[in-house]
Design a protein around this nucleic acid. Structure first.
Lengths: 175, 175
DNA sequence: CAAAGAATATATTGACTCGATATATATTAT
DNA sequence: ATAATATATATCGAGTCAATATATTCTTTG
């Protein structure tokens, strides 16, 4: 899976600009997939050259012009090839957890700060996902619902573990 | 956080070779951080040039020679700089969840396969983490314990959501 | 005993990706 | 007015991965 597969998936419903794609990814996919403009724009150029998508320049009122990209039949075929291919391993990279792993080398109060910051960020993320679920549930596919439930339950379990951990670490600190 | 910070953290306890570092990362950190040889070896060369680590060639019996790297005072200082710096955002990239998100474009039985494969991999991962916890708990720091608990609870919550989801999707399929 | 496979060990390359930066227009708020 | 925000595209350096290459030693298996 690379950004090409995700872009094709997003174009299956509607034609989109590079900017639209970034926005959609941030809104709906960011808790398990994301791409920067530095990935999206060069990839769109490459995909157009390969005939997976077509570009159309669209004039807009009150906004700069945009390049609207549409998926071709070759693109649809390529997307299905991806969906039938073997599943790749998940990769989770967490700076907060890396710090927890090396926590013994700094003062305990620093690690309490890391835990509390990690907890807050997880809470913010959970609220966003819950709101997204409320807003989009009617038009979500069954597998999309599983997807967001995994995100929500994951956040909830992290909040639980972190809250417990903070209490325990503060007790250790006081003794 | 980049691979330099993780390598320095691993060298805080013992001197290690590039190969040792890869092995340690896979055993203890792989559920939230990882690096390939293509990252580790060039990074070690760079860090040696910068005086963060020193290299020593060690003869071994029954094994090829190895380059043993040790952290310098400058390296220890650099590592603490990292530990006191602002926390970066987590990034989670999941191919399985990306497929779930786009599940509407392929047959339901394909998505059942994706869910079952995802479930199995999560179960394998959970077992590995539980075993690691049992094996290492006595020598783990308090924050390392929180770290692995997050990993274990995360897997457990995913297993729960996936199991529910598979049942629901199979019911939808039969109707 | 020979051959194959696994483990140890280091290194390189191409492709992918991110974050920062640059540029430009239009709308909204102060 | 002018600052900030939203829309929109593009590029570059740095970091990273997966695959590949090379070489030695130990273990297993036929």
């Amino acid at each position: 899976m690379n950004s090409q597969d995700v872009i094709l998936g997003l174009l299956m419903h509607h034609s989109l600009s590079g900017y639209d794609i970034k926005h959609k990814m941030e809104t709906f996919l960011s808790y398990f997939n994301n791409a920067s403009f530095g990935t999206i724009y060069p990839m769109l150029s490459k995909m157009e050259k390969e005939g997976l998508i077509t570009k159309e320049s669209v004039m807009q009122e009150g906004k700069p012009n945009k390049n609207l990209y549409s998926i071709t039949e070759a693109g649809q075929y390529q997307f299905k090839q991806y969906m039938y291919s073997p599943i790749e391993n998940d990769e989770f990279k967490s700076d907060a957890m890396t710090r927890l792993f090396f926590g013994e080398f700094v003062e305990a109060h620093i690690m309490v700060d890391v835990l509390e910051e990690f907890l807050n960020r997880t809470k913010v993320n959970l609220e966003r996902l819950r709101q997204l679920y409320v807003d989009c549930q009617p038009e979500m596919s069954p597998t999309q619902e599983i997807c967001i439930q995994i995100g929500i339950h994951n956040s909830e379990s992290k909040i639980h573990t972190l809250t417990q951990g903070i209490t325990r670490l503060k007790n250790v600190e006081q003794k």
